[in-house]
Computed example of a mutant assay.
Amino acid sequence: MADHYRAPGWFTRNVANRAVAGLTRAGVSVLGSRVLEVRGRSSGEPRRTPVNLLTLDGRQYLVSARGHGQWVRNVRAAGGDLALLRGRGRTRYLASEVAPDDSVDVLRAYLARWKAEVGAFFEGVGPNSSDEQIRRIAPRHPVFALTPR
């Protein structure tokens, strides 16, 4: 399951992601959007991608709807060191990966907020699915708890 990843299509890559990233860089958060900045694991250069920042019970989380993609691999390789950008603001975090069995509540809240946007990547599982159904797909959707630095 660690290899599970659904690459974005042309429209998402070239239009949607760029639009959300542009708005976020301008300081306009689209439903909690941020631009994730993390050191590339091969190049060492900063890599940026739009993400949805989830706040649940006073904690902040990042969820990879598409699976174990590049930003997930880079966060792991960087030891969890990352920054979230919004406008001119930059907040540094330490990201700790949440075990799949412990991520059910986070995934449920993420789906409740963004199912219309990301539901296609969750194999029919939604915010009203049982814990068992969410736990089944959890290994395919890495979750990171964020601690401000």
Rank of each mutant, 00 (worst) to 15 (best):
V38I: 08
T49M: 06
H4E: 02
V72N: 13
R140D: 10
E45V: 11
M1W: 00
V38C: 01
H68M: 06
L85P: 08
T49Q: 03
L146F: 02
A16C: 03
S33Q: 01
Q60H: 11
V63Y: 00
Q60C: 00
S43L: 01
A78P: 12
N128R: 15
L146H: 06
R13M: 06
T12L: 02
Y5S: 08
N17Y: 14
G9V: 01
R88Q: 12
V98K: 11
F122I: 02
G32V: 07
G44K: 06
R25F: 09
G126A: 11
A16D: 08
L111E: 04
V30F: 02
T12R: 12
G126D: 15
G22T: 09
A112T: 12
R59H: 13
T91D: 04
T147I: 01
R73I: 10
F144E: 03
P139E: 00
F11A: 11
A138R: 12
F11P: 00
A2Y: 03
A109Y: 04
P139K: 04
R41N: 08
G89H: 11
R41E: 03
D81Q: 13
F11Q: 00
R88A: 13
V75I: 15
T147Y: 04
A16K: 14
F11Y: 13
R66L: 08
R66Q: 11
A16S: 12
H141P: 10
V75R: 10
V125S: 07
E45P: 02
T12S: 10
R34L: 04
R108D: 07
A65H: 08
K115I: 13
R47D: 04
R140F: 12
R34F: 05
G79L: 04
D81F: 02
P127Y: 04
G22M: 05
R113T: 14
D81M: 06
P148T: 09
M1S: 13
D105A: 15
L62V: 06
K115D: 15
S64Y: 05
L85A: 02
S42M: 07
